[in-house]
Nucleic acid binder design. Sequence first.
DNA 1: AAATGAACCTGTTTGC
DNA 2: TGCAAACAGGTTCATT
Length: 273
Amino acid sequence: MPELPEVETVRRGLAPLLVGRRVTGIDVRDGRLRRPVTRRGLGPLRGARVLAVRRRSKYLLVDTDAGRTLLLHLGMTGHLRVDDAGRPEAPHTHVVFRLDDGRELRFSDPRRFGMVELIPNDRLEQHPRLAGLGPEPLEASLTGALLHAATRGRRKPVKNLLMDTRTIAGIGNIYACEALYRAGLHPRRRVGRVDAAGWDRLVEALRAVLNEALGAGGTTRRDFLNAEGEPGYFAVSLRVYDRKGKACRRCGTLIRRIVQAGRSTFFCPGCQR
DNA sequence: AAATGAACCTGTTTGC
DNA sequence: TGCAAACAGGTTCATT
């Protein structure tokens, strides 16, 4: 489900509901996630107060005054929702954090690709999931020049590079396709054959599409919902993703679907070279 | 070293 | 209509 704009949308929804709250209890209904979750492992969170909710790549970090940070990942189908205790739960609700205001933070995830982990702060930066992440695309540290320099002589397709979180954080299948379309780059183009101007265009296109998606509250194709249970509205603005066989809005060429590294890629053969 | 493919799961859509 | 195959917003491990 969630790429950077969706995770950031969830973060913005969660922050005002969680910051300042105290965790009064934790229920693990089904701990079989990507890594096993246990009530014991989350135990130190009991009584902790939430200081902040941050995002890094597609991870959410809930800082607490217990010297530990709750690391959350939504995988493909994960949801985080704050709701009044007693309200009906979504199916596949695996972990529930009870709060001191009568509400609950609920993590649900049908496919169980998501992650819930409590990490001591002094080990947070070295954590294997966070160490080695590339720059945030909406921050100034990501530049076309950086990508140009990093890709000389390499042969990886540019679409696959965009989705490699060690190079750029937070880009998934939808926004990789959309950014390449806006930059006029063919998804199979080898990274070593993209020139400096091409990388500049790509970074600019990436920022534009991510910011527009953020403004729309993210993309809901199947089941993305924010912390209040509402969908995002960027799906209507997608120009290539999931538009196989439809006409390109700019040149009329039919959008094609190919498979790269096991993932669908959508592109316009007329606009992308 | 770098790139691809399979695996992890369940639910929904597509195609015969 | 019914069933099976394909596919889904992600990450990680094994294999070329």
